[in-house]
Every structure is written in C-alpha cells, then in structure tokens.
C-alpha cells in the first residue's frame, strides 16, 4: 500500500477531480468549471520518523453565496481521499477570483448541449450587449431576449427564443 501511494502525483488528483461534477450542472466537472484553482501534494513527517501523504486542494466559489459550495467541497474531499492520501484538505478562498472566463471551451460546449446557453467572454466589464445576442441552445437562433437576469440558480438567467418560441436558461457572464 505504502509503495503504491508514493506514486500518486498531482496529475492523478486532477484526473480524480474530473469525476467530481457541479451538482447544479451534472455534466460538467469542477475542473472544467474552473472552480479548482490549486492542487498540491506531498509528504509530511509525523511522529516517530513515519511520514504521511497529504493532498491540498484549493477551490474558489462561482458566486459568493453559491449554496453548492459545501457539496462540492465534500465531493472533492471524498474523490481525493479515495486515492489513498492520509490527509486531505480542501480550502475555499478567493485568492483567485472566479470568472465565467475560467470555464474551459469543452465546458461551454457541454453546457450548450445540456440546454443552457454558455456565458459570453468577459474581456471587459459586463455590458448589456453581452446579455443581448445569446444563441438559443435548442435551435441556435440568436433572435432571443433576456426575460430575467435571475433564474433557477444564482448563476443562471432566463431567456426566450423568438425563433423556436421556447424559454431557455443562460449561464450568466461574470
């Protein structure tokens, strides 16, 4: 067991984290979401010359009041712990501020397939235009309008598509 554990690298942790999904969007992992900001592992000396393997994961919240943070923190802990570390620490901080630009292109395309329009790139501050020409995830028309900047979760807005006459959700640019 001890020898096997020694071979676990930070890469293994990143891979394990790919299996942890955002509970509000179950097709996207916390890594693709850009929620995990740092991963570190190593060995620390414990009493009587023995050592223990530790892993530290740092995550940043999407929205400060996101109620899914607690669940994600626990899921991350469990996934990393399973790799065989004696000590796992998951910290939430804002040293790196989350922005929707942290989402990977894969995440954005999965999001659209899941039925949620992905966020526009935030190269500047939020403008009304960013909430303007959003593509409908169902029929891909851009003839859509913002119905409400607030939706079923903190990170989603409600839109309506004039082309297919359906309501849909948009992940807010932040």
């Amino acid at each position: 067991m001890q020898t096997a554990i020694k071979h676990i690298t930070d890469t293994d942790i990143w891979v394990a984290l790919e299996s942890v999904k955002d509970p509000e969007i179950p097709v996207i992992s916390v890594v693709e979401m850009g929620i995990v900001t740092k991963v570190a592992s190593g060995e620390s000396q414990v009493a009587s010359g023995q050592s223990s393997r530790y892993a530290r994961v740092t995550m940043t919240p999407t929205f400060v009041g996101c109620p899914a943070i607690g669940v994600m923190k626990k899921d991350i802990y469990d996934a990393v712990k399973k790799l065989g570390f004696e000590e796992v620490e998951v910290t939430v901080d804002m040293d790196t501020a989350w922005s929707s630009d942290r989402m990977t292109p894969e995440a954005k395309s999965k999001l659209e397939k899941f039925g949620i329009a992905p966020p526009a790139v935030m190269d500047s501050d939020l403008t009304e235009e960013m909430l303007d020409k959003v593509r409908c995830p169902h029929c891909h028309s851009t003839d859509t309008t913002l119905r409400s900047a607030f939706g079923s979760t903190l990170c989603r807005a409600i839109r309506f598509c004039f082309s297919c006459k359906q309501g849909f959700e948009q992940f807010k640019p932040l």
């Binding site: 929205f63 400060v64 009041g65 996101c66 109620p67 804002m94 119905r147 409400s148 900047a149 607030f150 939706g151 079923s152 903190l154 409600i158």
Partner: peptide, 20 residues
C-alpha cells in the same frame, strides 16, 4: 414570477456576501 426570482436570488447573493 420573474420578480419573485429576482428578489429571492438577490437575497441569496446578499446573505452570501454577509457571510463572506
């Protein structure tokens, strides 16, 4: 409905900010 959601969402944001 939209305003119900708006005020509820803003409430959640504000309480989150206070917690931080």
């Amino acid at each position: 409905l939209e305003e119900d959601l708006a005020f509820s969402s803003m409430a959640q944001d504000k309480v989150g900010h206070s917690q931080a």
